[in-house]
Design a protein around this nucleic acid. Structure first.
Length: 196
DNA sequence: GGAACGATTGAT
DNA sequence: TCAATCGTTCCT
């Protein structure tokens, strides 16, 4: 299966909120040993070291080190003792920021997703940050990968997937800095983790 | 060494 | 509404 060339690292070397907005409608692909999975990004959130909800707010630690690295790499972290979440690192090296991918519309590898998720309903495969990492087979092994050249990639929007409209709202599940409208959703999608 | 907590999910 | 489940971080 062929896709458009993946987004180059400089795409991610901008303000994190701009990248989060522009990733809506882009295509996430993972060529794992078990097979290919792909989906259209429909929900993102921005995080930056300057605000309390960011893992890097109190400085660099072993876990959040990828956030301080060069743009265009993955930051995958473990949470709640059982879930993985996937981010795209943004901004210049040394400045910690990333876009959390919260939901995608499943496009390819549906049966592999169903097997990994243990669920049949299309709507339940990638609706939520930890659901999509499970469906895509993303965990510790996929941390700090280059999203341009590794098996885990993000590709530009295609004419078939132009966003109808993008809505902003407060980030889900964060108490700190909850006044920031740093969540971006594709209006009207039935694959959002929660209504926009 | 110990404890509190978490960018969630699924069942009740 | 609530339990599951454990790595990370911070405090003593």
């Amino acid at each position: 299966m062929e896709f458009i060339d993946p987004l180059p690292p400089f795409f991610y070397d901008r303000e994190v909120t701009s990248v989060a907005r522009d990733l809506i409608g882009c295509l996430l692909t993972h060529r794992s040993p078990e097979g290919l999975t792909a989906g259209v990004i429909i929900e993102t959130e921005a995080y930056h070291q300057s605000e309390r909800a960011c893992h890097a707010f109190r400085g660099q630690t072993p876990r959040n080190a990828p956030l301080f690295g060069p743009p265009g790499r993955s930051y995958v972290y473990f949470t709640y003792g059982m879930h993985w979440c996937f981010n795209a690192v943004t901004g210049p090296e040394g400045e910690a920021a990333a876009v959390l991918i919260r939901a995608v519309e499943p496009l390819a590898g549906l049966e592999l997703m169903r097997a990994r998720r243990g669920r049949e309903a299309l709507r339940d495969l990638c609706r939520g940050p930890a659901r999509l990492t499970q469906a895509f087979g993303i965990s510790r092994e996929q941390n700090e990968l280059c999203l341009h050249s590794s098996r885990l990639r993000i590709h530009p929007r295609t004419p078939l997937h132009l966003p109808a409209g993008i809505e902003v709202s407060p980030r889900i599940g964060v108490r700190a800095a909850k006044d920031l409208l740093w969540r971006f959703t594709l209006i009207g999608s039935r694959f959002l983790s929660r209504p926009g």
